[in-house]
């Protein structure tokens, strides 16, 4: 398939260069092959793989999903076969993807992040690493890495120390001051920030008088959280100079534009694929139309232009 090249939608996240600024959110796109019958993977920027941990995880009890107004609550529980099995059986298959492949690392200790990042990042099939730091630290009192500046810094430094590949750190919105966490993570060596992970939430079945998720609490995604995400990008873009991957409820080019105008250099689409697998391609074509109609030669020209505080990638 012939790719349009104008207006220019290229983006660089550290050394990771993408032809189009769309990443498919971790946990939402499998390894890409699940969506290959429904979307041309050559027309997306990157697939962010499902998170992998040091040891196998069965995942959470069911139900793992609850549909809520304009949103989706999930508590999958990082079901994955663990890094050893993953390296031996899964990673080689990613070489055939016609888009960039970003590995996602989750952990329950600083050492987990270092170990799994090091093992995964050496593989040629993996072009960049995203750190999923929205996990509890079992070594202390279980506070979430992403919600504590010191833990976020430690996890980022640990991963940074073991790979030179582009490192994206995914921030949680479940904090008082996301910009402060962003600054610390930038200082710890992240090449880019993913803003935001899901918003913590719960739904209760009033007939059965119990939470609708097997895990009780879950992460909310979808259009319901888009305004939360746009504000988080806005605040982070005024705090750091590294590029931001904006995400939260994007289903159209106009949704994505809110993030670009707030200061995101790229966007990630997760739950939007569940609504319609054509969303990523619609976003790309809609961005080209928007830019062309305004005489812009590249997406870069409009990034952050709605945000007076935008510092911009250096």
């Amino acid at each position: 398939m012939k790719l349009e090249t104008h207006p220019d939608l290229q983006v660089e996240l550290g050394a990771l260069r993408l032809r189009v600024p769309t990443l498919m959110g971790s946990g939402c796109y499998g390894s890409g092959e699940e969506y290959a019958p429904f979307a041309d993977l050559a027309e997306i920027g990157a697939v962010v793989l499902k998170s992998v941990t040091r040891l196998p995880r069965l995942g959470n009890p069911t139900p793992r999903l609850a549909v809520t107004p304009s949103g989706l609550l999930n508590a999958i529980g990082l079901q994955n076969p663990g890094i050893e099995h993953y390296l031996a059986h899964d990673v080689a298959k990613f070489a055939s993807r016609p888009c960039a492949v970003v590995g996602s690392v989750a952990g329950f200790s600083v050492d987990d992040y270092a170990y799994v990042t090091q093992r995964l990042a050496v593989r040629d099939e993996i072009h960049a690493i995203e750190l999923n730091i929205s996990c509890p630290n079992v070594g202390s009192e279980g506070e979430t890495f992403a919600c504590d500046a010191n833990l976020a810094e430690a996890a980022t430094k640990a991963a940074r120390a073991v790979t030179a590949k582009p490192l994206i750190v995914k921030l949680s919105p479940n904090v008082t001051d996301i910009a402060a966490i962003a600054r610390v993570v930038e200082g710890a060596g992240a090449d880019a920030l993913a803003v935001i992970n899901t918003v913590r939430g719960m739904a209760i079945d009033v007939d059965r008088r119990e939470p609708r998720l097997g895990n009780a609490a879950g992460g909310l995604s979808g259009p319901a959280i888009r305004p939360i995400a746009v504000l988080a990008v806005w605040n982070v873009a005024a705090a750091v100079r590294i590029p931001i991957v904006g995400q939260g409820g994007i289903e159209s080019a106009r949704d994505a534009l809110e993030f670009f105008l707030a200061g995101a250099s790229a966007v990630s689409i997760g739950t939007g694929n569940f609504t319609d697998p054509r969303v990523p391609l619609n976003v790309t074509s809609g961005l080209r139309t928007y830019l062309a109609q305004r005489g812009a030669g590249s997406l870069r020209e409009i990034v952050g232009t709605a945000n007076p505080g935008f510092l911009g990638p250096a």
Binding site: G27, C28, Y29, G30, E34, Y35, P37, F38, K50, G59, T62, P63, R64, L65, A66, V67, L72, N74, I76, Q79, T271, N273, F274, P277
Partner: peptide, 16 residues
């Protein structure tokens, strides 16, 4: 069951 993706990507609709 409630599905999210329906194509095997999200591991939301599982059974033991």
């Amino acid at each position: 069951e409630t599905f999210a993706c329906g194509v095997g990507a999200c591991w939301g609709c599982v059974v033991a």
